[in-house]
Nucleic acid binder design. Sequence first.
DNA 1: GCAGGAATCAAACGATCGTTTGAGGATACG
DNA 2: CGTATCCTCAAACGATCGTTTGATTCCTGC
Lengths: 200, 200
Amino acid sequence: MPTKERILGAAEELFARHGFEGASLRQLTAAAGVNLAAVNYHFGSKDRLIEEVFRRRLDQLNGRRMAALQKIAGEPGTTIEDVLAAFIVPALELSHDGNGSLFMRVLARAFAEHDDTLRKFLSDNYGHVMRQFTAEFARLLPQLSKEELYWRVDLVTGALTHAMSGFGMIQRKSDVPEERHRAQTAEHLIRFAASGLKAP
Amino acid sequence: MPTKERILGAAEELFARHGFEGASLRQLTAAAGVNLAAVNYHFGSKDRLIEEVFRRRLDQLNGRRMAALQKIAGEPGTTIEDVLAAFIVPALELSHDGNGSLFMRVLARAFAEHDDTLRKFLSDNYGHVMRQFTAEFARLLPQLSKEELYWRVDLVTGALTHAMSGFGMIQRKSDVPEERHRAQTAEHLIRFAASGLKAP
DNA sequence: GCAGGAATCAAACGATCGTTTGAGGATACG
DNA sequence: CGTATCCTCAAACGATCGTTTGATTCCTGC
C-alpha cells in the first residue's frame, strides 16, 4: 500500500482512539510502518494530516448524502423519513465499510473540540450539505419557526453523532448478519429522529 | 480564594477549551495564578485533578437529578416529560450558575474520549443515576422492548449532551432574561426528547 | 546505463510536557 | 521564642512532542 494511504489509515485509527493531540506522530508512523519524517514530507504538518483524514472520508460521505437527497428533494411524495434516510444511511454504510466506523468517532471528537481552525475547515468545505438538508426539512415542516427548526435539526445531529460514534448500542450481535443489523440500526435512528422532528 | 478552588476553576475552563491533553499544567497554573507545583502538591497528579473536576460538579448535578426523580418516580400521575425535566433542568441550572456552562463542554469531551480509565470512573461513580432514570422510563414506556428503550435513552443522552455542551442554539439572546431563556431551552429539549422516546 | 527527481532514513533540533526536589515562607500552638 | 506543619516557590528532572536536516536509496525517463 502506498505510504500516504498507510499513514491516513493509521491516523484515523489513532485519532479516534486517543484524540488529535493525544496521538503522536511517533506512535502514528510506527503503527503505519513508515518513517517518522514521512508525515511532514507527504502532508507538510500534523494539522494538514488531520485535514486530509477528514477530507478523504467526508468527500465520499457527503457526496453520497447529497446524491440521495437530490433524488427526493422537492418531490411531492417525500417524507421526513426519506430525508433522514438520505442523511443516515450513507453514514452507516461508511461505518461498516473498511475501517470507516473509526471515522465516525473522529468526527465526534471534532464536534467536541471547539478548535476554531477545525470548525472553519468543516464549515467551509461541508457546510452546504447541512444547509441543503435543513432546507428540505423546512419544506416538510412548514409549521415550525426557523428557530424551532434549527433547534431540532441540531438535536438530531447530536443524537446521531453520539450513536454512530460507537457509544451506543450500535455494536452488532454476532448472530445478526451485518446487512440486517445496518437496516435495523437505520430504522431505530430514523424512527427516533423523525418523531423528534415532528413533535407537536 | 483557596488555591485548590482556583486550580479547579482554571482547570474546568482550560479542559473545556483545549481538552484534557491539550491543556498543560503550565497554562493551567498560570491562569489560576498559582505555582506550577501546586497541582501535584494538592491533587497528586494531573489525572487526579481531572477526576476532581468531574467530582465537584457531578456530585452536585446528580444529587439534584436524583432528588427531582425521587419526587416523581413510581407516582401514578408522572409523565415522560416530568422525568425528562428531572434530568434536564438541573443541568441547565448548572449551565447558568457560575462557570458551570463550561462543565457541560468538559462532559461532552469525556464522552468523545474513549479513555477507559475515565469511562470507568464515571460509570463507577455515577452509573446508578442513569440506571434509575432508565428504570423510570421503562415503567412509563412498557410497550418498548429493553433493546428499544436503551436505544432511545442513548439517543436522548446524545442529543442533550450535544445541545448543552454549547454547540447548538443554547446561547441566550441579549434581550431575553436568563430565567426565561432557560425555561424556553428546557421546553425545546423536553418536547423533542419526549417525542423521540414516545415514537410509535 | 546514467542522470535526476522522489522517497526514505537515522539523527538531531528546540520546545514543551508532567513530575520531583529542596529550600524557604507562612501560620498556629506549646 | 521556638518549633512543627502546611504551603509556596524557582529550578531542574527525564521524557516526549512536532519539525527539520542531510545523507542515502529507489525509481523513472532518456
